[in-house]
Amino acid sequence: MNNLDLRQLRYFVAVAEEGHVTRAAERLGMQQPPLSQQIQAIEAAIGVRLFERLPRGMRLTESGRSLLGDARAILGAVEQAVETCRRIARGESGRLAVGFTGSAAFHPFVLAAIRSFGEAVPAVSLALEEGGSLELTDALAAGRLDAAFVRAAAGRRPGLAIEALMEEPMLAAVPVQHRLAAAGGAIRLIDLSEETFVLYRRPSGPGLYDAIIAACSAAGFSPRIGQEAARLPSVLSLVAAGLGVSIIPASMRRLETEGIVYLALADTPLLVAPLQLVWRRDGGSAALGHFVAAVRRLQASRRGGGTPI
């Protein structure tokens, strides 16, 4: 038995639905004799009669009625598959993997960007992954992620684009019972020179780690590091437990961790936490292009005096 192709299935469905070869030929934009020949070829290929020939038309046999249901399902599935491919090519469907560092996850800009993209193209499935800046950059380079919000990309990588979004101030985080907690307001970095520090591990976030060490050095002391944690929320938990103080991006105070007081740093204007978007240049994904565009629109709105973020 020969296989039927999609063209033949369309011919068969048209004749079955019209119940007349001439009307089906008009619907298909072809001549009646070639269509009649195609129906005969289909029956010969299957080895059964699909139609009863009547004086004024065609009527399906029981076998023909069975084939009609399957043929419609097959043609519908093919049309759906084609449309899905087109939607993916337009960036209206598919999957996008986006990463973010532990501190970036709490920045309102990141949350707004993800929400804005989700509202614009709801059919795109967003897979979100948290990690350190180095981990996320490696995942981008390996193709496991499409884009990531990081504090500082771990060096330039071939095939990756980096765009600076903004900088935010850093705050001191001290236990609620700390001697400086009651003072409120701003403190100087040198006021922490005798403290034990809890920091984010350098391999996970070398940018923030190095910036803090450099700022302390500029203030005239080398910080005594007592604990390191793989994630910034863990850093705050250790501070709340009274194991030391830390320096964190201002947006991290949104965690509202109990047992911590956040203090502004008065003498460190250059101690800031950058926020960057890194993405794959060669991702070949229209959805990725839409995501980058959504981030840029949000950034333009922020810079243009729109709703503060």
Rank of each mutant, 00 (worst) to 15 (best):
D5L: 08
D5W: 06
R7E: 15
Q8V: 12
L9T: 08
F12N: 02
V13K: 04
V15D: 06
A16T: 09
G19D: 02
H20R: 10
V21I: 13
R23G: 02
Q32V: 10
P33E: 11
L35K: 00
L35F: 03
E43F: 05
A44V: 15
R49S: 13
L54F: 00
G57M: 05
M58D: 07
M58I: 09
M58E: 12
L60S: 05
E62P: 09
E62V: 13
S63A: 14
G64W: 02
R65H: 09
R65P: 04
R65C: 08
G69V: 14
D70V: 14
L75T: 02
V78A: 07
V82E: 11
G91T: 03
S93I: 06
L96T: 03
V98H: 02
V98F: 06
S103F: 01
S103H: 00
S103Y: 01
S103A: 12
A104N: 06
A105D: 10
L111F: 06
F117L: 08
G118F: 09
A120G: 02
A120R: 10
A123W: 09
A123N: 13
S125R: 14
L126T: 08
L126M: 05
E129P: 08
S133D: 13
L134H: 11
L134Y: 12
T137Y: 01
D138M: 14
A142G: 07
D146Q: 07
A147D: 01
A148W: 03
F149R: 04
A153I: 11
A153N: 06
A154S: 15
R157P: 07
G159Q: 08
G159W: 04
L160D: 03
E163S: 12
P169W: 02
M170S: 06
A172C: 01
A172H: 00
V174A: 02
P175S: 01
A181K: 04
A183E: 14
G184T: 07
I187W: 02
R188F: 08
L192I: 04
S193T: 09
S193N: 09
E195C: 02
F197R: 00
V198I: 14
P203C: 08
P203R: 04
S204F: 13
D210Y: 08
A214I: 11
S217D: 15
A219P: 06
F221A: 11
P223L: 09
P223F: 02
P223H: 12
P223C: 11
P223Y: 09
P223T: 12
R224W: 13
A229W: 06
A229C: 13
A230K: 07
R231S: 15
P233M: 03
P233G: 03
S234V: 15
V239Y: 07
L243W: 13
V245I: 14
V245A: 08
S246T: 09
I247A: 01
I248K: 01
A250M: 13
R254C: 08
L255S: 05
V261K: 14
L263K: 03
L263Q: 00
A264R: 10
A266T: 02
D267L: 02
L271A: 00
V272Y: 03
A273G: 04
R280S: 01
R280Q: 00
R281H: 00
D282A: 07
A286N: 01
A286E: 00
H290T: 10
H290Q: 11
F291K: 00
A293M: 01
L298R: 09
L298N: 04
Q299H: 14
R303M: 13
G304Y: 00
G306E: 00
T307V: 12
I309E: 12
